[in-house]
Amino acid sequence: MAFRGPRVWLWRWRRNPLRRRADVVEGWLVLGVGLLTVLAGVVAGLLTDRSVAQGLARERADRRPAVARVVAEVPQGPAGRRHMSHRAWGWVEARWRVADGSVRTGRVRAAAGSGAGTRVTVWTDSRGHLADSPVTPGQAAFRADLVGALTGLSAALVPFAGGSLLRARLERRRMTAWDTEWARLGPRWGRTV
């Protein structure tokens, strides 16, 4: 096992007769890539978080609950699947009235066994078309934070991977230069002139 001395911080920028130009370039590269990685991740994550949160807030503002009436009876679910905690649902045609007074129809989910005329709450958009129920503010915040964090991590990987590739290329060049020097000086190593 090779002995390694104490770790010296910022050694690439300190004055040292053994410091090579490649060490300085690598030091600046590591610093620049680190800053760019953090900056890209934070900016992309925050922008995505804000965009998703605003989109979900617009969706919440656009959705309206409406009372629909089931047109035909919902068939009973299979007898073997009925439990106290499990309620069978089925898809059925329903009608509802939108804000402008017109009547719309569509397929909605209703409890099994619901008869014609049963009231079902549906969600509609501003044009009166069926829509999913909006997410709660807490769910929206969680979703926005999760998407923002994943986007930030993904965006941070780009400069990090690019910097890693550049460092590997610098390392190969440094090793090639050392091999060249060793080929030139190695045969003369044991001579005493």
Results as ranks from 00 to 15, higher is better:
Phe3His: 13
Pro6Gln: 08
Pro6Cys: 10
Trp11Tyr: 03
Arg12Asn: 06
Pro17Gln: 01
Pro17Phe: 00
Val24Leu: 14
Val25Trp: 15
Val25Gly: 07
Glu26Arg: 15
Trp28Met: 07
Leu31Trp: 12
Leu39His: 03
Gly41Ile: 04
Gly41Glu: 05
Ala44Thr: 09
Arg50His: 14
Ala57Arg: 03
Arg58Gln: 15
Arg60Ser: 04
Arg60Leu: 01
Ala66Glu: 09
Ala66Trp: 00
Val67Tyr: 09
Val70Thr: 09
Glu73Asn: 13
Glu73Arg: 07
Gly77Ile: 11
Gly77Glu: 12
Gly80Lys: 01
Gly80Asp: 06
Met84Thr: 08
Met84Trp: 02
Gly90Ser: 02
Gly90Thr: 08
Ala94Arg: 07
Val98His: 11
Val103Ile: 11
Ser114Lys: 05
Gly117Lys: 13
Thr118Cys: 11
Val120Asp: 00
Thr121Asn: 08
Ser126Tyr: 11
Ser126Asp: 13
Ser133Lys: 12
Ala144Ile: 09
Ala149Trp: 13
Arg167Ile: 06
Ala168Leu: 07
Leu170Trp: 01
Arg172Pro: 03
Arg172Glu: 12
Arg173Cys: 10
Ala177Asn: 11
Ala177Tyr: 12
Asp179Thr: 11
Asp179Ala: 08
Thr180Val: 04
Glu181Ala: 13
Trp182Met: 13
Arg184Asn: 03
Thr192Gln: 13
Val193Arg: 09
